[in-house]
Design a protein around this nucleic acid. Structure first.
Lengths: 339, 339
DNA sequence: CTTCATCGGTTAATCGATTAACCACTTTGC
DNA sequence: GCAAAGTGGTTAATCGATTAACCGATGAAG
């Protein structure tokens, strides 16, 4: 009673050898095991409350049913949680568990984390790097199967999944053009963050398609904060040919735009339509009126990465895949026809 | 080259037995190993890039250097991330890794999660339950050492850490009374969430201490959302003896109070001081003016729980400890003297 | 009447460490 | 001068599974 039962205990209780017990419980060994014996073993295992020791199993099979998750800022960014949860759910459904390490972005720490995971014989690694678009997989990863999350390699040598920023931007812009807007401003940050360039260029392209010169409608500020979103909006809305709508780099900046609009006596959405990116649950639905925003599909990316990793575990020869995950538009009340 | 080196390879390279190699690398076995031999083994290990196989080690020693983290909504709540990070950091410093399972609050899933972790021979379990103050540790946990996070048992049979909600409430209320406020309203939720009762009662007590009847200054709404915070504030601020300050159940509700104040033409903090609870980084500093709020010390709780768990691993006889973690006040610009 | 699958298992090797028990030889204490 | 203690290791058992190789009946094919 004091000890956990081992496979040997189950075997003894069922009157068979441990080999038979193992095969009966795992449905391995082809047709070797008679159905009646199998039942007897199963019953004995249930009776004793047997749970396999996966450490022992892992030593023999070299598979631990654990996946390493290396994140470069697991909790600091609010998105990370959703990504982890997506990965967790997919892993759990397949009988895997997630072993987490956070590296706060330091490459040396990343190396160390990978080492610590490999010591524990994880079956594969998820590398989630939140702040860099393009990334190099550390050599130390060796032949451990690996999938990149929210990043990709320059040469496509590893599987990866990133959000379709262009598609998401086109999505929210379509909300505006669909309502009849053409003079659409853009407030963004000057920081070299991963998403800036794509969102900016896509907006430029779209405006040019409409025959509008984007540059007079662009405001760039130092960083993507609420305060600077506010200041940027004041500047943009004071310009001679005021835009009828504005596309914000992210929700936090949009929050600043709301304040600027209120101070200027502009009603959203009637005097000014606003769309944004990220769809943060604490902000976009909480603003009044609700903010239409392109959602970053972190949950789905987490799931996808695990599914892909499991595929590579099954078939190490499989070619790596680069995936673009769509960013669906969360439609709320911040868009109306221009006056 | 194709294989990872094993201890046997290191031993052979150093010309010793695996026993000696093991003792040399782990500094065990007392004074058995000569310093020159130890160096030779170390050098061979470094040369070969040897990393111990912790699965094999775990089978022998019954310790895996892994801690199970069972959360009932790991990523859904934005706080969880900080708690995980605190636990992660403390674990990593001690050479442990976190094995995570999310149960979305379902007791059956929790049982299963504990089982899955025990199969993997984790050394201890962190049980984080975000929505219940008092909790029962499932029987299935057996003798696995366990620490409760953000919850405690009725009988104090397990170590646990919870935020000092009373202290935090007194802290933000002191900001108001210190500035000269006495008519302090409270907007809270009717939901049976863990924090509601303490915050409410503490506020009541404090007001009575000041000789004020709290009931006319209380508003309760269905849930703790921004929208209902807004509606609650409209109601509270329309009352005959309008409060000069308001203490909100959480930051999201405070966000609604800001909107209500703006609509009523009340300036914060000059016409109305506002304090709150949670100090969510996406809200409290982003509001204008910045919101003074009592911070939930999730990072510190995560750290504490791991430290306590490690203590119990060292000494299984140690008496369980119940810890109250202080909630420091994040002081911003939402409080001023009453007019 | 041999030969040879097939059935339903068992035996024993193995995964890669840790560690108790042992060993041969030198010092040291009394 | 002899037992006890110390030095610097080695041998072999062990942790709890998986799995390749083997084995004794039984029945069918040639």
């Amino acid at each position: 009673m004091t000890k956990q039962p081992r496979l040997a205990d189950v075997a003894k209780a069922a009157g068979v050898s441990t080999a038979t017990a193992s095969m009966a419980l795992n449905d391995t060994g082809g047709r070797r095991i008679g159905p009646e014996t199998r039942e007897r073993v199963r019953a004995a295992a249930a009776e004793l409350g047997y749970r396999p020791n996966t450490v022992a199993r892992g030593l023999r099979t070299r598979r631990t049913q654990m996946i390493g998750f290396v994140g470069d800022d697991v909790a600091t960014t609010p998105f990370a949680g959703q990504m982890i949860r997506g990965a967790h759910d997919a892993a759990r459904e397949a009988g895997f568990l997630l072993l987490m390490v956070d590296t706060s972005g330091d490459p040396a720490e990343t190396e160390e984390a990978i080492g610590a995971l490999q010591e524990r014989q994880i079956d594969g690694i998820l590398l989630a790097t939140m702040y860099h678009q393009v990334v190099e997989v550390p050599d130390s990863i060796g032949s451990t199967p690996c999938v990149l999350l929210d990043a990709r390699t320059a040469d496509g040598s590893a599987s990866s999944v990133v959000p379709d920023e262009r598609g998401g931007t086109l999505g929210v812009l379509a909300e505006l053009t669909g309502a009849g807007h053409v003079r659409i401003g853009h407030i963004t940050t000057r920081e070299e963050v991963q998403a800036r360039a794509v969102r900016l260029e896509t907006w430029r392209d779209r405006l040019r398609d409409c025959g509008i010169d984007p540059e007079p409608l662009l405001v760039e500020v130092e960083s993507a904060t609420t305060q600077l979103g506010y200041e940027g909006a004041l500047e943009l809305l004071a310009r001679p040919d005021r835009p009828t709508a504005v596309f914000c780099f992210n929700d936090r900046m949009a929050m600043g735009v709301y304040r600027a609009a209120a101070e200027l006596g502009l009603s959203i959405p009637n005097d000014l339509s606003v769309v944004s990116y990220d769809d943060q649950e604490l902000i976009a639905p909480a603003l009044h009126p609700g903010l239409t925003s392109a959602a970053l599909p972190h949950y789905d990316m987490g799931r996808w990465a695990v599914v892909e990793l499991l595929r590579r575990l099954d078939d190490p020869e499989a070619a790596p895949v680069q995936h673009l995950m769509p960013c669906p538009v969360a439609r709320r009340q911040s868009v109306a026809k221009p006056r």
